[in-house]
Design a protein around this nucleic acid. Sequence first.
DNA 1: TTGAAAGCGGTACCAA
DNA 2: TTGGTACCGCTTTCAA
Lengths: 329, 329
Amino acid sequence: MASLHDVARLAGVSKSTVSRVMNDEYGVKEATKVKVRRAVEQCGYVVNQVAKDLKSNKTNLIGIIVPRVTSNAVSQGVDGLSRVFEESGKQVLLANSCQQAGKELQYLELFNQKRVEGIVMFATHIDDELVKAIKRSGAPVVLIGQDGSSHNIPSVIHDDYRVGYCAAEQLHQAGCRNVGFLGVQSDDIAVDQMRFEGFCKALNYLGLPVPAFHTQGQFSIDSGREEMAQLLRDNNKPDGVFCATDRIAIGAIQAIAAAGLAPGKDIKVIGVGNDEMASVVSPGLSTFDYAFEPAGSNAAKMLLEIIEQGRSQVAKLVLGFDWVQRKSC
Amino acid sequence: MASLHDVARLAGVSKSTVSRVMNDEYGVKEATKVKVRRAVEQCGYVVNQVAKDLKSNKTNLIGIIVPRVTSNAVSQGVDGLSRVFEESGKQVLLANSCQQAGKELQYLELFNQKRVEGIVMFATHIDDELVKAIKRSGAPVVLIGQDGSSHNIPSVIHDDYRVGYCAAEQLHQAGCRNVGFLGVQSDDIAVDQMRFEGFCKALNYLGLPVPAFHTQGQFSIDSGREEMAQLLRDNNKPDGVFCATDRIAIGAIQAIAAAGLAPGKDIKVIGVGNDEMASVVSPGLSTFDYAFEPAGSNAAKMLLEIIEQGRSQVAKLVLGFDWVQRKSC
DNA sequence: TTGAAAGCGGTACCAA
DNA sequence: TTGGTACCGCTTTCAA
């Protein structure tokens, strides 16, 4: 591939002159410009950004780490992120950890070697190792989905505690008196712990008994269906179920219907996220609309501020949600 | 940020020696290694991959261009791509054109400046400008979703013609005699043209009349619903509808139900893709299961082959599909 | 208006 | 076993 040097030789000028022409710098004779441009055309010269990056010590690169792309939260978040970054002329390096723990740490390291200017991480959990790796990172890190602000890591999260609280209120208002929670693995603070805590708090406040159950499944329809079916088999018959995600809730609805009961009548169901599927399932799933795309764009803005100003005004951004009432509750 | 030079000074050795230690090269005294490692630790040295890339003239970078991430085809495809690339030690630069035509061309150029080793592009259409830009690209390009093989661009596509053909057969077999197609904009060869052509071909072969309609909407539930509602209002009452995508089909089902008709009985509906929503909607949507994730992983493998061998054995990979029968047809 | 040369942070060859 | 040096492709003084 042709370099500045090749172009210079072809045009019969020096590298410096070619560089000046390429960068539209002031002070090059028109005739020289023409010669250079012709030479560029002739050998199909494309500027080598790697060399420029090295020289300028600036890459315009942002690293993004995701557990997978096929999830509403992630894909909408990435759309939000990439829009903002590309508006500011940043390019995006994407790393997919495929949910393998430890991979994130490797990518953090790789990104630093590539001299990214900042990193956005969709976190599924936080542990000491991860916190240490983030502290060690030369490039600033912003977290999406889990709260790292107590470790002084800027984070964009959803109001998971309050969503749990509201879910309990909605179930109570719908007449439920015996409710439970279909959660996920307990090291997911945001999706399992916070939502459950808020849920329990509200129940307590409303004078309802503690949750009849708190299962720990996967993030899938199948998992929700199995968990719910198992509960019904165990004759643990609630009149309301709060599910950590919409997918789980849809599985629950299927299991309830399969057991000959009426979801939304015999057993109320509430999810979280407002996945497009929630509007399509029958009965329509009552859920909380989460701002996934804004989570991405806000995280991007925070990161840009940190990169440009050295620090961010906001240490933690908590996004609200909206109650979306349908037939399931 | 510390460089080799800093480490060398701190350890009291030369840059060459530090480089040797960092790369585990043979022939460094143990004591020296220890000194160097301590110095590395002390100043938190992280290798500068930009400099390495420049020197070695190799970036291990792959560019990916998508119209958006929030789509089943894209998000699953990206998951497939990134898995394969990361197994081969490649990193992924992601560019989101946000469906703005022309953006793809810019990214093609940017990627070449960044010296990516190859590019995967999720194409929504193909025109001369795009073909020219791809030809001009120094890095090899593989297309996903549209057939560029007639321009000698390696492509991974789905069997869109045959899916249209099969859809007609299924509708015919279900007893339909007056059918139509809910498509998308006509410059989308794969999703609109090919599927429609196959559809027409089969109708002709089966001795059915030509399609009663061929609308051109968007890739969304809302669009499908509106198109279908309009058709019903126009008293254009078919007994079967083939939809270019599952989302459109779900919209159609909603419109049919809203008109007081029974989707799957009065009017059969078929989609394409096997979106998770298809299993959730009521009645269940009969559709064709498309291999989106394999599209990504196969495109990645093709690109790697081109990068490593200089050329690919396969010029075009056509992925099959499976009929998924549910209640809507 | 143009060119020569140094330097960004590495690697690799040759000499010591 | 180690150090000196040239070079990857570009930018940026400084001098001509």
